[in-house]
Design a protein around this nucleic acid. Structure first.
Lengths: 201, 201
DNA sequence: TGAGCCTGTGAACGATCGTTAACTTATACG
DNA sequence: CGTATAAGTTAACGATCGTTCACAGGCTCA
């Protein structure tokens, strides 16, 4: 870690915003350049190409989610606390970095094979982390734990769609804190209901 | 209704599949043509352009969802039955037409202004239909009914992501029926939890 | 001072893409 | 029979896009 190039960070931020707004293929390199104050080809001094920018963003977010999730589970006193912590972490992420969350499951198909496999692997590990914790908290979940966790992700990640995404990300209809609390309750309610009367298969 | 052109229906089907697989901007007209056995420019005998194909798909699905939803609510004996029916209808849609569900909230930004406004209007009416019913069933839901409904849509529409989408759509991990049942329970559990102890604001 | 790197520029390239044009074939019909 | 229409074809167009190239200014440092 050697004091990350600030220009690279700026490009990342603007590219994420533009990709989320109009899609990876809908944004040209000249436009990304203009957003950071340089011209299109100048970006190639900082990234190997447009694909590399998307790969950097998607791998970065996948690693951050997984690392944060592992740290939270390891630091929790019991399964219930682990689930609560996972939830809070993911909700914070969805509310504060909605552009990245959007890209995370919308632009995977635009990645080159190698990087796509890497992101998928990280995503899979993150899901398994949740599945393990969910099974501990809700023993009633059997074979359905994995699809239930996937559905909960869909629920949590839906926030970018439910409000126009402002620059600060703080303009959710009911306020950020209220939205976080609501998502928390929705997710727990869903998992709890999946565990009740579900087949033990 | 004058016996819809079968070639148009074929183009719609293949275009929906390709757009869902690789994105609207990631698919060329030549490829769509090849999928239906003609060549690229031949498509222009059936659609005004590529944009028109996407518009046809998105407007079509939005209208079908809204029409079906209204019919189901009108035909229900009580609010609870209306919610159950809305749920079943949307789940059937998500499971049987996962390609369209994917496009529905992924490719809106690629529509021309006029058509995008039309789809947004239909979507808004569909959401309001759900919000009304959800408020009747769960009086505890106040201001949070709308974001909660949005989140439930995210949950239900997540199914395309949780399994590789087979041609028949019937290859969900736990079987179609089990998946439908699980989604039903998850959605009801989420809404119920949102209504409990939630601010009445 | 001057050599070398870092970061930027504008011009140009090759490829791809949506669309149009000109033309052909087959079918339906008065 | 003759003709209008529907549904294809290939060729070509203009535009856009990602990327490369050749070059220039400025900073560091021996």
């Amino acid at each position: 870690m050697v004091a990350e190039n600030p220009r690279r960070a700026q490009i990342r931020r603007e590219a994420a915003r533009l990709f989320a707004e109009r899609g990876f293929l809908g944004v040209g390199v000249d436009e990304i350049g203009r957003a950071v104050g340089i011209s299109g080809p100048g970006l190639y001094r900082h990234f190997a190409g447009k694909d590399a920018m998307l790969a950097d963003l998607l791998i970065g977010i996948s690693e951050r989610l997984l690392d944060q999730g592992r740290r939270r589970v390891d630091g929790a006193d019991d399964p219930r606390a682990a689930l609560e912590s996972l939830l809070q972490g993911h909700i914070d992420f969805a509310l504060d970095e909605s552009a990245l969350i959007t890209l995370h499951d919308r632009e995977l198909l635009n990645l080159p094979d190698k990087e796509r496999r890497q992101v998928r692997s990280l995503q899979r590990q993150y899901v398994e982390l949740w599945v393990g914790v969910a099974r501990d908290v809700f023993p009633g979940l059997g074979e359905e734990a994995r699809p239930a966790v996937h559905a909960v992700f869909g629920l949590l990640n839906s926030t970018p769609h439910s409000a126009a995404v402002g620059p600060s990300g703080a303009d959710h209809p009911a306020g950020r804190a209220a939205m976080a609390e609501l998502l928390h309750r929705l997710a727990l309610g869903a998992l709890g209901a999946a565990a009740e009367t579900g087949p033990t298969a």
